[in-house]
Amino acid sequence: MSEIRPQCPLCAGEMKKNGKRNARTRWRCKNATCGVSEQTYRPDITAKHHFTYFHNHVTGIYPITECARLMKVSTRTVYRYFEPLWLIEIPNNPDRHRIHDQIFIDGTYTAAGCLLIASTSDHVLCWHWCKHETTHAYTQLLSKLAAPLCVVLDGGQGAQAAIKKLWPNTLIQRCLIHAQRVVRRYVTSRPRTEAGREIYNLALELTSRETVQQARKWAVDLHKYGIKHHDFLNEKTPLPPEIDRTGKRYEFTHRRVRSAYNSLTNLHKKGHLFIYLTPPKQAIDKKSWASNTNRLEGGINSQLKFIARCHRGRGGERQRKMLEWWLYNKTPLPDDPHKIARQQNWGKDQLAKVHVLTHTENHTNHETGRPALYDNAIPTEYNHSVGIRKGTIR
């Protein structure tokens, strides 16, 4: 096999091996009139070596000190190696033309902000960073995907509004475990009244419905509950005159039990409880439809929280990059991370853009007659306005 030999940087002639220095091969030009000697460097191999440790660090539980021990360098050197690698952009471009049977959406809060995730039963589809779970945030998340047959969610109003806006024909399955939690939040796990105990038992029976007949029986029991405790739920208590609640003279006596009952009746009227039992004809795998978001919360969100705890103290943009690398590895067809980093020159292209922007952005000042984009400091030369120099005038 022919050996790849470097060319002479002076005469472009062929070079030959000329021993080693510091464990690196030295090359010498064969041309007697030239005789240039040099060592060749492969910065791409070095960058790939650093990125391997970086990727294992951000997607695993290894701390910086462990990376320093394996790389046989100091911790400060590892920080310097990893500095440009944090600027690599992670792809977040799902297939906009693939239609899924059922997807799961949910948000989890981290030190870097609120992370909205859309996934299937075994893969991550896309994600979006925001401050809160609002309609606009969920719209940005769902606009990256084609309309699925069904969406399973935990009951956020922002998610439902975004689905109705983008996918009006998509079915909505409310997570039954979250529906149970809403009832438990109103009546507690040990209700004191008979009506509270009965509505809590109805909520507990939600997750055990496996056939359409059982779901219909549950709906009949809920209807009978409303008839049986109609007077109890509608009892009102007059408010004292000193209590001003926007002109209301009465309030419901058992408002917490009433709220628990209304939470279940509203979901049943909207048809958000038992969609998983009657999937549409277009569904490919009708037996695998889920009634809760456990596959997203237990399989993805919990792992993200675990990685964040292992690297506690890291927040902001770097924590976002760390979690995005883990999410990207869970996508259906992820590319080789080394290939992504190599295409972006191991983050050095983004680092060069940062230096260019910070050094060339501010070209104007007050002497040119135009306002500066930002000032570097208060001028030290004499100014007749002492208040500006003292900081009393802003």
Rank of each mutant, 00 (worst) to 15 (best):
R256N: 12
Y138A: 03
N201R: 14
Q140T: 06
A219Q: 13
E235Q: 15
I177G: 03
C150P: 00
C175D: 05
E242Y: 07
L176K: 12
V152N: 08
D231L: 08
K144R: 15
V152F: 07
A161M: 03
T211R: 15
E198N: 01
F252D: 07
H178T: 05
E251I: 08
K144I: 05
A195V: 07
G247T: 02
A203Q: 10
L166K: 02
W218M: 10
L141G: 09
D244F: 00
F252G: 05
A146T: 03
H254I: 12
G247H: 08
T139L: 14
H254S: 11
V220M: 12
T193D: 10
S143H: 08
Q173C: 02
A147G: 02
A179W: 05
S189L: 04
E251P: 00
H229A: 07
V220R: 13
A179H: 03
A147I: 01
K228S: 04
R197C: 11
T193M: 13
K165E: 03
A219T: 13
E210Q: 14
V212E: 12
T253Y: 11
G155D: 07
H230V: 03
Y186H: 12
Y250P: 06
I163H: 10
V212L: 15
P238G: 04
A146Y: 10
D221G: 05
V183F: 10
L204P: 01
E194Q: 08
L166V: 02
R184Q: 05
Q214F: 05
K236Q: 14
Y200Q: 11
K165M: 08
R256K: 15
V212D: 08
A161S: 05
P240A: 15
R249Q: 07
K224T: 01
E198D: 03
E251S: 14
T207V: 14
L202D: 13
L149Q: 11
A146I: 02
E194C: 01
P241G: 04
A161E: 03
T188W: 10
G156C: 12
I243T: 07
P168H: 00
Y186G: 04
P148L: 06
A195P: 02
T246G: 05
E210I: 06
L141W: 14
A159R: 06
W167Y: 00
A195T: 06
I172N: 02
G247C: 04
L171E: 04
E251V: 11
H132R: 14
V220I: 15
E242F: 09
L171M: 14
N201I: 09
Q140E: 14
A179F: 07
P241L: 14
K236H: 11
P241W: 09
K165G: 03
R184S: 04
F232S: 02
A137N: 06
V151A: 09
T211H: 08
N234S: 13
I163Y: 10
I177K: 13
L176H: 08
R258N: 12
D154I: 12
K217Y: 04
K248C: 09
R258K: 15
E210A: 08
R174A: 09
L233E: 06
L176R: 07
Y225K: 04
G156P: 02
R255A: 15
Q214Y: 10
Q213G: 09
V151E: 00
I243L: 11
A161W: 02
K224H: 08
N201A: 11
N201Y: 04
R197M: 13
Q173I: 09
A159L: 10
H136Q: 13
L145K: 12
P168N: 02
G226H: 14
A147P: 04
E194M: 03
L149K: 13
K165F: 01
L204M: 15
A159I: 08
